Amino acid sequence: MGWVSNDNEHEGWAAAVAPDGRLSSSSSGEGMLVEGITGRYKPDKMLPDHEVIPDSEIIGWRGACGCGWRGEMWERVAYPADADPAHRRDYVPPHKFADASSRVEDAIHDEWRAHVAPSEAVLGVEAAAREYAQAGHRLDKTVAAAKAAGASWTDIGRAVGISRQSAHERWADKQ
Results as ranks from 00 to 15, higher is better:
Met1Gln: 00
Gly2Glu: 02
Gly2Met: 01
Trp3Gly: 00
Ser5Ile: 01
Ser5Met: 02
Asp7His: 02
Asn8Cys: 07
Trp13Pro: 02
Trp13Phe: 04
Ala15Trp: 02
Ala15Asn: 04
Pro19Trp: 08
Asp20Ala: 05
Ser26Tyr: 09
Leu33Lys: 03
Glu35His: 00
Thr38His: 01
Gly39Cys: 03
Arg40Tyr: 02
Lys42Ile: 12
Lys45Cys: 11
Lys45Val: 15
Met46Tyr: 15
Asp49Ser: 14
Glu51Gly: 03
Ile53Trp: 06
Asp55Ser: 09
Glu57Met: 10
Glu57Tyr: 06
Glu57Cys: 05
Ile58Glu: 05
Cys67Arg: 13
Trp69Tyr: 15
Trp69Phe: 14
Gly71Asp: 09
Gly71Ile: 06
Arg76Pro: 06
Arg76Ile: 02
Val77Ile: 11
Tyr79Phe: 12
Tyr79Lys: 10
Ala81Lys: 14
Pro85Gly: 07
Tyr91Asn: 04
His95Thr: 08
His95Met: 06
Lys96Thr: 07
Ala98Asp: 05
Ser102Pro: 03
Ile108His: 09
His109Leu: 15
His109Lys: 15
Trp112Met: 12
Glu120Leu: 08
Ala121Leu: 10
Ala127Ser: 07
Ala128Gln: 13
Tyr132Gly: 10
Tyr132Thr: 12
Tyr132Lys: 13
Leu139Phe: 03
Lys141Thr: 12
Thr142Asp: 15
Val143Trp: 10
Ala151His: 05
Ser152Val: 02
Ile162Cys: 08
Ser163Leu: 04
His168Cys: 05
His168Ala: 02
Ala172Trp: 05
